[in-house]
Design a protein around this nucleic acid. Sequence first.
RNA 1: GGGCCCGUGGCGCAGCUUGGAUAGCGCGUCGGCCUUCUAAGCCGGAGAUCCUGGGUUCAAAUCCCAGCGGGCCCGCCA
Length: 653
Amino acid sequence: MGNPMFSVNPLNDFRSECKKILKESLKKVFPELKIKQLTLKKPPNIELGHLASSICFELAKEKNEKPLKLAEKLVESTDKTKLNLIEKVVSAGGGYINFFADIKKFSALTIEAIRKLNSEYGFVKTDKPQKIIVEHTSVNPIHPIHIGQARNSMLGDALARILKARGHKIYRHYYIDDVGRQTAVIAYGYQKLGKPKPEGKPDHFIGKIYTITSCLIEINRLKKELKRAKTVSAIEEINKINRELDGWMAVAAELKTKFPKLFEKLLEKISEDEDPENMVNELNRRYEKGEEEAKKLVREVSQLCLKGFKETLNRAGVFYDSWDWESELVWSGKVKEVLNKLKKTPYVFSLGGVLEFDADKVAETYNLKRKLGLREDYELPSLTLVRADGTTLYTTRDIAYTLLKFQKCEKVINVVGMEQALAQLQLKIALYALGHGDLAEKLTHFAYNLVTLPGYKMSSRRGRYITFDEVMDEAVKRAYEEVSKRSPQLPEEEKKKIANLVGIGAVRYALVEVDPSKPVVFTWDRVLNFEKNSAPYIQYSHARACSILRKASRKPEKPAYELFKEKIEHEIIMDLASFPDTFIEATEYLKPNMIADFANTLADKFNAFYNALPVIKAEPKELSDARLTLVDAVRIVLRNSLNLIGIIAPERM
RNA sequence: GGGCCCGUGGCGCAGCUUGGAUAGCGCGUCGGCCUUCUAAGCCGGAGAUCCUGGGUUCAAAUCCCAGCGGGCCCGCCA
C-alpha cells in the first residue's frame, strides 16, 4: 500500500481504512445488502477502541439476529492481511464493532504530519474556496466599545480566522453607522460644547458626551410631553410619562455625580435651545442631505470615536480590510436607487406619510416562510423604509449596503446580535423582493446572545456599561502580577509582553468559549479566569511543552512509537489526529467555540501526561525520543488552535 | 397576544446539526501531591428527576408534539 510520509488528516486516513474493511466484511457476509453511508464514532473510552460502528444494531432487525452475533460474524470475516493502520477489529458491548489503530503506525502518521506541516497542520483546505465578507463589530461611533459588543468582535474575528485558514478569501468589514439619530445626538452635544479636544481616550470622551446629551434631550422631551398630557388630563399617560421621567432623572443624577463638569456645561448649553430634540432631527436631515457643515461636524465626531475604536481593536488583535461609511451609501445615491427599485415592486406602500415594506406579502408570494424557518401562519411585521421627514432608517440603508457587499464577494456573514434577528430577516426578504433571492441565500446572520451585567442589561444610552478597554486593562494587570510572582527572573520587557498576551487571551477566550446562542452574564472572575478552562491555562500548557523541548536540548533521533503504552499517550495521539476533523466542523458549522473547547481538552490531557510521565529522562532513549516528538506535536497543535481564535501562544510564562 | 433563543450536579458550561456503550468539564466542596521536565499544575472523593409530560425507535440529553420557566424581538431606534 505504501503509506504517505505524512497526511493532512490522519484520523480520516484511519477512518477510511476502517470503512473499507467494514464494507468488505458486510459484502462478504451479506452480499445482497446495499450499504448506505457508514458513520464511525469514537467510543466513550479509548480502551474500547479508536473508532466504532453501531451498524449491527440497525441490521439486527432486518436480519433477525442479535446485534452482537452480527458483529462477531463481521469481525470474523475481516481480511486480516489487508490491515494497515488498523491493529485489530473486535466486537464488543451489545453489538459494536470496534477498531483499534496500530499505535506505532498511527502515531508515526500523526506526529510526522504535525511536525512536517507545522503551522499549517489541521487547516484542511476547502475544495470550493469562496470570497467571503465577514462584517462584524460595527459599533456605532458614539461611545466606547463595551464588553457586550466585544463578544461580537471576538466571534467575528475568530470566524474570519478559521474561514481564512480553510482556504477562503476573507474580507473583514466594519460598517460605520454614522447616519441616524444617535450620531446626530452626539454631534449636537459635541457642537454645544464647542468641539472640545478630547480628555483621555477619544471614544471614552465621546461616550460621556453622548450619554449626557441623550439623557438631557430625553428629559426635555418627556417634560414637554408631560405638559401636553396634563392639558388634556390623560391620567394613564401622565403616569406612564412620569415613570419614564423618573428613570431618566435617576440616570441624570448618576451622570452628574460621575462627570460633574461635563454635565453642568452640557446642561447649561442645551438649555439654551428651545427644542433640542428638533435640533437633533434637523442635524440628521442635513447630514443625510450631505450639507457641508453637517458633514464636517458629524464626520469629525465619528473619526474621533473611530480613532479610539481602532486603538482598542488593534490591541485585542482585531484588524479590518475595509471601513465602510454608511453615509457614503446615502450620498452616492445607492440608497435612493434601492428605494426606487423597491417602490416599483408591489410590496411598498405609503402609510401616514411614511414608506412601508410589506415583508409578509413577499414571503407569501415567494413561498419563503418554510425556507426561512417560519410557520405558515406567522405574519411578518412590515418594515418602515422612510420616515415622514424623508430620512431613511437603518435597515433600509443596510439593504443598499448588502448589495454593495455582494459586488465584492460570493458570501456575506453578518455578525449581528440576536436581538436584531427580525431586522436581518426583513433585510433578507427585501433582497427577494428586489429579485436577488440568490444573494439572500448567501447571506448569513451569525447571531449571538447578549452579555448582561448581574441584575441588569448594559445600556449605552444610560451610560451603564463596562468598556472593553477596562476589561483588558484589568486582565493585563492581573496577568502581570501573576507573571511577576511566578517568573521574577524574566526581564521587565518580557514580563510585560507576556502579561499582555495572557491578559488579552483570557478575555478573548472567555468570549468565544461559550456557545454564541447562550447569554453570558459578565462577572470579573469569569473573564479574569486564569485557572482551568481559560486561555492562560492553555497558554501555560504550551509554555510547559516549550520548556521541555528547550531543556531536552537534543533532537529526537530514533523515536520508537511502539513504546507508547500508556492510555494517556494514546488519548493525546487520538486528539492530535482529530484536530483536522474538529477544524473542518468548526468551519463548516461556524462554531469557533469548538476550537476553544478542543484546545482546552488537549491541554488537560497534556497536563495529565506531564504530571504522570517523564519525557527527557524516560528510558529507553527511544521512548524519550518518541515522547519528545509527542510534546512537540502537542506544542504545535495547541499553538495552531489558539491562533485560530486570535490568541498568542507564549514560549514562557 | 405572536415570533425567535435558552433550560444539563449548589453555581458556570460541553455534548444536541449526524440518536448508540458508565452524561463530560470547570468553579465551589472534602482528601492527597512541589529534593524529578514551570503547582497558572496533577491525582482521588462527594454531588445529576439532562425543565415537565407524551410520542417515534432495538436505543432519546440528542428527533417530534404539548406544556412550564427565563431572555430577546414585534419602533418614523440600531
